[in-house]
């Protein structure tokens, strides 16, 4: 699969984290904690991946009473293909790497 821009380590980490269980819907804060990413870095990544059709999102309908429904994310078919490609590449070993929270260079 051809990519027009090189993905940042943070974006790659998000894709690979979601690819661990591609069928599962994940919360944004859950991904923040798993990847040690700041929400200010994670949400722009999620937004851009969704814009590119690599992620699909939905609202959690089972939110407790009095709380707003949370947003859930999972990979689309294109996202899974890209994650598979990234997992096979040597540079993909970026998960939980120290320094992931130092800034965001774009998706």
């Amino acid at each position: 699969m051809a990519r027009s821009r090189r993905l940042s380590p943070q974006t790659t980490a998000v894709l690979l984290a979601l690819a661990e269980d591609p069928a599962a819907w994940r919360y944004g804060y859950q991904l923040c904690q798993q990847l040690d990413l700041k929400p200010g870095s994670l949400y722009p990544i999620l937004m851009r991946l969704t814009d590119r059709g690599l992620l699909e999102s939905t609202w959690d309908t089972g939110a407790p009473t009095g709380r707003p429904p949370r947003h859930l994310y999972r990979l689309t078919g294109s996202g899974r293909a890209l994650a598979t490609e990234l997992a096979a590449a040597p540079a993909a070993v970026v998960r939980r790497r120290p320094g992931l929270t130092e800034g965001w260079q774009g998706a």
């Binding site: 944004g28 804060y29 707003p68 949370r70």
Partner: peptide, 9 residues
């Protein structure tokens, strides 16, 4: 809205 909802949790 997603960020606000996440903050609420």
């Amino acid at each position: 809205r997603a960020m606000l909802a996440e903050l609420a949790s």
